[in-house]
Nucleic acid binder design. Structure first.
Length: 272
DNA sequence: AGTGCGACCCGAACGC
DNA sequence: TGCGTTCGGGTCGCAC
């Protein structure tokens, strides 16, 4: 489940592996994952190079000379760099071959990830990118920003923190962790979250994401970034997937409930 | 406008 | 053991 820290880890790894290599060939094995015109997808990439890799929220933005290739890993998308001669694996859906005989392979068991090749000037009007809210660590992400965004929200804070148009990049794992850090009950109505609690959300999201990036993200299920870099942040998780285990602060068993259809983990005693 | 929910997928976990 | 069923997870689009 790649969230912002995982995507950042993938970005950093790929930058070392594929920048400025010339694209020789592109094969798409599962066409629905390409949101832009499938007929021109390969043709537009061949002969070009990735000159930079940026990120916005959970979106990877591969910069080419004249285009951007947007890539969202959703839950289980991964990139691997492999020699050209290695046989295709079952869940490899896009293979980009470079002229040095290496290949960049997009692997996704659930086929949920998406790619979108756009003209550079269209980035400013591409909805998925434009709608992204402020990222953890952004100096504009303040308690007053959050208070204003939460003001009319009747939904549980857990659900609202998953809304990428408010804070960009938090997924289920880190929302559970941030709420534990801020000692907020995930079911609390967003409009009732206090200024002090907003401060803790700002502080907690920044701290947790920074540490997770430092540790290479979180490994849940089989998640590994490109080159098989395995995230170590799962060792730091305090509540996520810890149902029944004692809370690290007070010892009460961690609860697991569904909020908005998503599994939520929290300590009933610490998060009132 | 805000909210809720199904669709998209398929391996893993679960139930019998 | 082996089969069938359910679940999960981010985002979009549609219905209310």
């Amino acid at each position: 489940m790649p969230e912002i820290a995982e995507v950042e880890t993938v970005r950093n790894t790929l930058k070392k592996q594929i920048l400025n290599k010339k694209i020789q060939d592109v094969t798409v094995f599962y066409q629905p994952m390409i949101e832009s015109d499938i007929n021109t997808f390969a043709r537009d990439l061949i002969g070009k190079s990735f000159i930079d890799i940026k990120r916005r929220g959970k979106w990877l933005i591969f910069e080419l000379e004249d285009k951007y290739l947007l890539s969202h890993l959703r839950m289980e998308g991964k990139f691997f760099l492999k020699p050209k001669e290695e046989p295709k694996e079952k869940h490899e859906h896009v293979i980009i071959t470079f002229t040095d005989n290496t290949t960049l392979r997009y692997h996704d068991t659930r086929k949920f990830g998406r790619m979108n090749l756009i003209n550079k000037e269209d980035l400013a009007t591409t909805a998925s990118i434009v709608k992204q809210g402020l990222e953890p660590g952004d100096k504009n992400l303040t308690n007053s920003y959050l208070l204003a965004k939460f003001k009319n929200k009747k939904l549980p804070i857990k659900t609202v923190l998953l809304d990428q148009t408010i804070i960009s990049g938090l997924g289920n794992i880190y929302v559970n962790e941030v709420l534990f850090y801020a000692k907020i009950n995930p079911l609390k109505e967003a409009s009732k979250v206090t200024q002090k609690e907003c401060e803790l959300i700002v502080e907690g999201s920044d701290k947790i994401i920074k540490e997770a990036i430092k540790m290479g993200g979180t490994t849940i299920k089989s998640y590994t970034s490109s080159l098989g870099v395995t995230g170590l942040f799962q060792q730091k998780l305090k509540v996520h997937k810890k149902a029944g285990e004692p809370c690290s602060v007070c010892g009460s068993p961690i609860k697991n409930i569904k909020i908005g259809g998503r599994s939520s983990y929290y300590c009933e005693n610490c998060q009132k």
